[in-house]
Measured scan of single mutants.
Amino acid sequence: CHSECLGNCSQPDDPTKCVACRNFYLDGRCVETCPPPYYHFQDWRCVNFSFCQDLHHKCKNSRRQGCHQYVIHNNKCIPECPSGYTMNSSNLLCTPCLGPCPKVCHLLEGEKTIDSVTSAQELRGCTVINGSLIINIRGGNNLAAELEANLGLIEEISGYLKIRRSYALVSLSFFRKLRLIRGETLEIGNYSFYALDNQNLRQLWDWSKHNLTITQGKLFFHYNPKLCLSEIHKMEEVSGTKGRQERNDIALKTNGDQASCENELLKFSYIRTSFDKILLRWEPYWPPDFRDLLGFMLFYKEAPYQNVTEFDGQDACGSNSWTVVDIDPPLRSNDPKSQNHPGWLMRGLKPWTQYAIFVKTLVTFSDERRTYGAKSDIIYVQTDATNPSVPLDPISVSNSSSQIILKWKPPSDPNGNITHYLVFWERQAEDSELFELDYCLKGLKLPSRTWSPPFESEDSQKHNQSEYEDSAGECCSCPKTDSQILKELEESSFRKTFEDYLHNVVFVPRKT
Rank of each mutant, 00 (worst) to 15 (best):
N142T: 12
A251N: 14
L180S: 10
L133P: 00
D393K: 15
G348P: 12
A120D: 01
G373R: 02
G152I: 01
D292T: 09
N200G: 02
G373T: 08
I278P: 00
G110Q: 14
K112Q: 04
R179L: 07
Y160A: 15
A316P: 14
T241E: 06
L331R: 11
G125A: 13
S400G: 08
I250L: 08
P287A: 04
M235L: 14
I137L: 11
K218M: 12
R332S: 09
D312P: 11
S208A: 15
F175D: 00
L143N: 08
P288W: 10
N387D: 03
L204M: 15
T383F: 00
L227D: 00
S402M: 13
L265A: 03
I134A: 08
S396I: 04
P351A: 09
P410R: 07
V308N: 04
K103D: 05
G348T: 14
K375T: 12
S239N: 03
F268W: 09
G295M: 15
N200A: 05
E264S: 12
G256D: 03
I181T: 01
Q121S: 07
N320W: 14
L293G: 05
D326V: 02
L161R: 00
I163R: 00
T213E: 14
Y300L: 09
K103Y: 05
S239M: 15
I188Q: 04
R202V: 12
T353W: 03
S321D: 15
I327N: 01
L180C: 12
L293S: 04
H222L: 14
G139T: 03
L219H: 03
L143P: 06
T241M: 14
I214Q: 03
K407F: 02
T113I: 06
K360C: 08
S158C: 13
K350F: 08
K226S: 07
D335H: 11
T113Q: 15
G343E: 15
S400Y: 15
S398F: 05
L349K: 01
E109F: 02
L349R: 01
Q121T: 09
F275A: 15
S402T: 14
L151W: 03
L280Y: 00
C261K: 02
T213I: 13
A145M: 11
A374R: 03
N211F: 04
W322R: 01
Q216K: 00
S171Q: 13
G217V: 00
E302P: 09
D292R: 05
S132G: 09
S402Y: 14
L133G: 00
D289I: 02
A316T: 15
Y300G: 01
D326H: 02
S366L: 01
S333Y: 02
R165V: 10
N320Y: 11
L219I: 13
V128Y: 13
K337L: 09
P287Q: 04
L265K: 13
A144S: 15
C105K: 01
G183S: 03
G217Q: 02
K112G: 09
D206V: 08
T371H: 10
K162R: 09
E148T: 11
S173P: 02
A374Y: 05
F290N: 15
L204C: 11
P287N: 02
G189N: 15
R369H: 06
P391R: 02
P351Y: 09
Q339D: 14
D206L: 07
F299V: 05
D312Y: 05
L294A: 06
F175T: 01
H222K: 01
F175V: 05
V170K: 04
A168V: 04
G140T: 05
L172K: 00
S333Q: 13
S171I: 02
E237C: 15
T273Q: 11
P351R: 05
T361Y: 10
L178K: 00
C261G: 02
G125K: 11
W322M: 03
W322K: 00
E237T: 11
A195M: 12
Q216E: 01
T241H: 09
R291C: 13
K407L: 04
I114Q: 00
F220W: 05
R247G: 12
V381H: 03
T273Y: 07
E184D: 15
D328H: 04
E302G: 15
T323V: 14
S274Y: 10
L153A: 13
S389P: 03
P330T: 05
Q403T: 04
D289F: 07
W282I: 03
I137A: 08
N248L: 10
D315R: 10
I188L: 10
E155N: 10
P329Q: 14
L201A: 02
L349V: 05
V363R: 06
R369V: 10
N248I: 11
P329R: 12
Y300H: 11
P284I: 05
L280I: 05
G140S: 13
E187Q: 07
S260A: 11
N190R: 09
K177G: 06
I135A: 02
E156S: 06
W205C: 02
K350P: 02
E302F: 03
V104Y: 06
F174I: 14
S269V: 10
F174W: 06
T213K: 06
H341M: 06
